[in-house]
């Protein structure tokens, strides 16, 4: 039965994707891509990928919409309509259809969905599933693979996120000269939702709970879906909500920019540092077994630390990006 639900939701996904591409209003496209992300998360969940669904939820529901909207506020809301209108363009269409057709043709060679004998399930995955209880001793295999077995990969990903944050800062400017403090203050008040009493009261009430949930996701990631990536995105969402409600200036007062810059750097440093400490203690890079007397406890400690590093960097980068866009808007 789950298969039928999946087929239905995937069909909706295609419909939404077509609608996104067809709409000339970019705001409508952003709203539809919000639905796209929700559908994606539900599909991930039905395909037994709870961690991925949680990541999509954390990123897609809060941060992505906010980023696209602030980019729209800085650019234009409509696509320019040209003579010829919204007509399909033939050459790209042919290229796209050729690629799509080729891929569909290729799928007939694929093993069917859920086939336990598919080549994907033969190579390393069984080893991870068998050895996680013994070597790492945590229930969530995804976290075990992410943090320990493939920790090197994750370190790379964290540095990609770090680099993207640095990139946004260097493109949109680290500092900008304030025109006048008073007008900036008025500006922020006009932009914030400060005079909307109901959203403000409710939203301010929500912020601590979102942060609490982020902490739960962060530190319970070994036992349930979650981990640093999700927790970082959720925590960033909480602060973004606060900034939307109270104005960007107060959001920056809550988490100042120097703190964000320290967060962005220190999270990545913590991750790499744990690896170096492992080397100093006689293990190999990111081999947490040497961190404690019992190897599995060392793994627990190492996972805790690197997940913390991931969470700090991700939330730092997402908030930095948000502030960079918001500040651009207010000048």
């Amino acid at each position: 039965m789950t298969l039928v639900f999946g087929v239905f939701l995937l069909t909706l996904l295609v419909i939404v994707a077509v609608a996104i591409v067809r709409s000339t209003n970019l705001f409508a496209a952003v709203m539809l891509s919000g639905i796209f992300s929700l559908l994606m998360a539900v599909n991930f969940f039905l395909l037994d990928a709870a961690d991925v669904a949680l990541t999509e939820a954390a990123v897609g529901a809060g941060v992505a919409t906010v980023l696209f909207l602030s980019a729209l506020a800085l650019t234009a809301e409509h696509e320019q309509v040209r003579p010829g209108g919204a007509a399909l363009q033939w050459l790209p269409l042919v290229v796209a259809f050729a690629t799509g057709g080729l891929l569909i043709y290729a799928t007939f060679q694929n093993p069917v969905i859920g086939d336990p004998n598919a080549p994907v399930h033969q190579h390393v995955a069984p080893w991870y599933l068998e050895n996680t209880p013994e070597l790492i001793d945590i229930p969530n295999v995804v976290t075990a693979v992410l943090g320990s077995f493939r920790g090197f990969d994750t370190l790379g990903e964290v540095f990609v996120v770090f680099t993207a944050g640095i990139g946004v800062l260097s493109i949109l400017g680290l500092r900008h000269t304030l025109v006048e403090m008073t007008s900036a203050e008025i500006d922020a008040r006009q932009r914030s939702l400060r005079h909307h009493l109901i959203p403000r009261v409710v939203g301010r009430g929500m912020v601590p709970f979102i942060l609490l949930f982020a902490l739960y996701v962060q530190f319970h990631g070994e036992y349930s879906p979650g981990g640093g990536f999700q927790a970082g995105a959720i925590a960033a969402a909480a602060i973004i909500l606060y900034s939307l409600l109270e104005g960007d200036d107060r959001g920056r007062a809550l988490v100042p920019e120097w703190l964000l810059q320290i967060m962005v750097a220190s999270g990545a440093l913590l991750f790499g540092g744990v690896g170096v400490v492992c080397m100093l203690l006689g293990g190999s890079f990111l081999d947490y077994s040497v961190l404690a007397e019992v190897p599995s406890e060392g793994q627990h400690l190492g996972l805790l630390l690197i997940e913390l590093g991931v969470g700090i960097t991700v939330s730092g980068v997402l908030l930095t990006v948000f502030h960079a866009f918001a500040r651009r808007a207010s000048r």
Binding site: V52, T55, V59, A64, V160, G165, G227, F229, A233, L318
Partner: peptide, 9 residues
């Protein structure tokens, strides 16, 4: 999981 976060960045 990591690709989603990298994607948004």
């Amino acid at each position: 999981l990591t690709a989603i976060v990298v994607g948004i960045a």
